[in-house]
Nucleic acid binder design. Structure first.
Length: 800
DNA sequence: CGTACTAGTCTTTTT
DNA sequence: GACTAGTACG
């Protein structure tokens, strides 16, 4: 019996093509993990490759763990020397060994986004940036993007010439990086960028890894960014035995730097590459696949392919519109409960997917009410909770005294009467003496004008050094217990009287058991090792295999998973696709959102239910959104019930070649009714080019309709452009509008006035036109160009 | 120095 | 609506 007998023809070919570059385009559910594990087994058993020479890289720890497990089963002896790891942990392992070659200490700590923000705040203070104008987050985003593109501070500064904002970023980047370096800390992006830097500046180090990793495999290749691409390229530069697996249709991480062109242009990078497509799907019914195919077909930037199965059509896709988000949640919970009971299913056979984490709460409430077991994946990461970060900061301080962020975080937690004034004096001393913050605490007596604060600081430093001494005799669990005890942290938490104190205590206890588990499992448990493991976990990592509970999670988190029954909630334009996408003038944003829809749909094995709500509270504001365009992209005969008609012509019909904005608002004159049972009442009058809505709006205090069209590859729509609508067409108009529909009143500004918009900043009013129910205002913004909007929605403020 | 209130932001997604 | 950071006040 051959190792590859259980694979289909394409899979077999993919698993047995071992030399040279290989691109496996693996559609959803086409068995790519199977192929990868078989390929590894084939390499070892059929080709006699030493396991030591194999590198398999994934994105999440969960994926790495699963692959490890499956490979272990297939390969047996020697499989432990295969390097199976995530990008980030791979880099950490390499850097722990060699980072001293590029000027860092090998016991560096890893900063999460919170820590980075703290550092950036300091940087902004030092550079005297007004953080109301220059946001820390914006700077960090820009820096992160640069790092993902392997652009260091120096190069960034060179490129920034002539651009004011870029120069600001460049200065912040330089300072930020210096601060990290001083704290001997790396952020997530540094892990990748510095590994590449290490390889580029130390050819001998690179060579040693090239010699080790003769066969490289990369999973989820469509999500790699430029830094990851370069890392892989360097490692594979000798052997060229590089096998990448991915699905361009499932590329959903552009926002964090993923470059879909890595997969689309693989054959350009490696002209000798073989390409194998896996299109047979072993997961879903043909109906589900047809729906997924129909949606993704609307994307332009993709490799042509279509999933198929021989499993049969299965049942139709359920579409359930509701009046409110509450109704929707109620339906989902009760439907799952009903099916579980009637068909003797496990709650674990179900998953509910949504676009934003904020949607989980209302669903959770219903699950609680029905008494159903569930687990919300994501949301606030366990390791980013305040109490966990506090405790970890103690451990980091003990582990690496150079980590200023950690030291400052806990210096006065629990309260030791050390205030901001004292801290800034210490910081100033540390800066002028060019020592770490912690070192400054040790030498507190040398700092002038501290008074009796010096004693407190010394006491703190002595305590920390006491903990360090304990590391020699105590194990990790004892050390942590002593930290919690001696610092009085747990005590303070218990007696704080805060409402969620009990939860927090439990979280800390959870951390204690995680540490104990680490100590039991790790070969050589160290404090650094624990902190490192903890720094690199993702939400999805904690989702175990089995479980009698329904998972609630974002569509992003669901990638790679599958369920018998899948509910996708909130299929509404404005929510999914999100309004930011709808109003974006980059068409690839909508394509990314559509790929997300594709991912969501293809999670379902047998039963898929799409639902939406006409009315929903988002960010404390009631919104009225139409049915998602992604639902409308599914052929109606695949759905179990007809879609309500759009109540007006498709917005696309109004325009042909420009991005345009249309807003309208309901009148609130008829009672709200759900789609299925719309009253026969005439629809509200609409301002020209008003948004599409279904049904009539009920009485409400706030409503939002926002529309924006662009050149979409939507087929079958005529593109009539009535002359009367022409005046509304403006080049480059992209916005969203929201606010009270208290329209009609003349705005307090006039043509020529300077106004301020919440998103676009300042500009000059160039036109003001009275319309049926609102004023239409045209503004030429200083930074964002010309925009046309309705006065009631735009919330423009006149400035002097 | 610590507490209590206010304003602003967020909600797209994460290693 | 919920959280957080910043400010005013005790």
């Amino acid at each position: 019996m051959n190792l590859l007998d259980t694979l289909n023809k394409e899979q077999r070919e993919a698993a047995s093509t071992t030399t040279g570059p290989l691109l496996i385009i693996a559609g959803a559910g086409s068995g790519k993990t199977r192929v990868l594990t078989h390929r590894i087994a084939y390499l070892i058993e059929e080709e006699g490759v030493h396991p030591w020479n194999i590198l398999a890289i994934t994105f999440t720890n969960k994926a790495a763990g699963e692959m490890r497990e499956r490979v272990d089963k297939m390969v047996g002896f020697g499989s432990e020397s295969i390097w199976v790891a995530t990008f980030h942990s791979t880099c950490v392992r390499i850097l722990r060994r060699y980072i001293d070659r590029i000027g860092y200490d090998t016991n560096f700590t890893i900063y999460d986004t919170d820590d980075s923000k703290t550092v950036m705040k300091e940087v902004c203070k030092r550079l005297q940036y007004d953080t109301k104008v220059i946001k820390e987050k914006a700077l960090l985003n820009a820096i992160s993007a640069a790092k993902n593109e392997l652009i260091g501070p120096t190069e960034f500064a060179l490129n920034a010439q002539g651009d004011l904002w870029s120069q600001k970023v460049a200065d912040a980047y330089r300072e930020y990086q210096a601060a990290l370096h001083k704290s001997n800390a790396l952020d997530f992006d540094d892990l990748l960028m510095l590994t590449v830097e290490l390889f580029r500046s130390c050819p001998d180090v690179l060579e040693s890894y090239q010699e080790r990793f003769k066969y490289i495999m990369v999973d989820e290749y469509q999500d790699t960014n430029t830094a990851q691409f370069e890392l892989i390229r360097l490692l594979a530069d000798q052997s060229h035995n590089l096998c990448v697996v991915g699905d361009d249709d499932q590329s959903i991480y552009k926002f964090r730097g993923a470059n879909i062109h890595n997969i689309l242009d693989f054959e350009k990078t490696y002209p000798e590459a073989r390409v194998i497509k896996l299109e047979q799907n072993y997961r879903s019914t043909q109906s589900i696949l047809n729906a997924a195919n129909a949606v993704i077909r609307n994307n332009m930037e993709r490799k042509d392919k279509a999933l198929w199965t021989d499993a049969g059509d299965g049942e139709k896709i359920h579409f359930r519109p509701f009046e409110t988000a509450y109704d929707e949640a109620e339906f989902i919970a009760s439907d799952i409960a009903r099916k579980c009971k009637a068909e003797h299913l496990s709650f674990g056979d179900f998953a509910v997917l949504y676009r934003t984490n904020a949607q989980s709460r209302i669903l959770e409430e219903q699950f609680v009410m029905e008494g159903m077991p569930y687990q919300v994946v994501g949301g606030v990461n366990f390791y980013s909770r305040k109490e966990i970060k506090d405790v970890l900061a103690y451990l980091k301080t003990i582990d690496n005294g150079q980590d200023d962020v950690a030291v400052r975080r806990i210096l006065n937690v629990p309260k030791r009467g050390i205030g901001a004034t004292t801290i800034s004096k210490v910081q100033a001393f540390a800066d002028t003496s060019d020592i770490s913050f912690f070192e400054a605490l040790v030498r507190a007596r040398e700092i002038p004008s501290l008074g009796n604060a010096a004693g407190k600081l010394e006491g703190f430093a002595t305590m920390i050094r006491g903990f360090r001494g304990e590391m020699r005799e105590f194990n990790l669990k004892q050390l942590l217990a002593d930290v919690l005890e001696t610092t009085g942290y747990l005590e303070e938490l218990r007696t704080s009287g805060e409402e969620d104190a009990q939860d927090r205590v439990e979280n800390v206890e959870e951390l204690v058991s995680k540490m104990a588990a680490y100590e039991d499992e790790a070969e050589e448990p160290t404090l650094s090792g624990f902190l490192e493991e903890v720094a690199l976990v993702a939400d999805i990592d904690s989702v175990g295999e089995e479980g009698e509970r329904t998972l609630l999670m974002t569509m992003h988190a669901a990638k790679g998973l599958e369920f018998e029954h899948v509910y996708v909630a909130g299929m509404e334009d404005g929510l999914f696709p999100g309004y930011l996408t709808i109003s974006s003038d980059d068409p690839s944003d909508m394509e990314e959102e559509r790929r997300l829809a594709y991912v969501a749909i293809t999670r379902a094995k047998k039963h898929l239910t799409l639902s939406c709500a006409q009315k929903r509270m988002i960010r404390g504001e009631t919104q009225y959104n139409p049915i998602s365009r992604f639902v409308r992209e599914i052929p109606e005969d695949l759905l179990d019930r007809p879609l309500p008609e759009k109540k007006s012509r498709a917005v696309d019909e109004y325009f042909d070649d420009n991005d345009s904005l249309f807003t309208g608002f309901g009148t609130g004159r008829s009672s709200g009714s759900s789609y299925g049972a719309r009253s026969g009442e005439s629809e509200p009058d609409r301002a020209p080019g008003s948004g599409v809505s279904y049904g009539s709006s009920g009485t409400f205090s706030k409503a939002v309709y926002s529309y924006n069209t662009k050149k979409t590859p939507l087929t079958g729509l005529s593109r009539k452009t009535p002359e009367s609508k022409k005046p509304f067409m403006t080049k480059g108009v992209t916005t969203l509008s929201k606010g009270m529909p208290a329209a009609g009143a003349k705005p307090e500004y006039n043509v020529g006035d300077r106004v301020k918009h919440i998103k676009f900043g300042e500009g000059t009013v160039t036109a003001l036109e009275k319309h049926e129910r609102d004023y239409q205002v045209t503004v030429s913004f200083d930074g964002a160009g010309q925009k046309i909007m309705y006065a009631a929605f735009a919330k423009l403020q006149r400035i002097e």
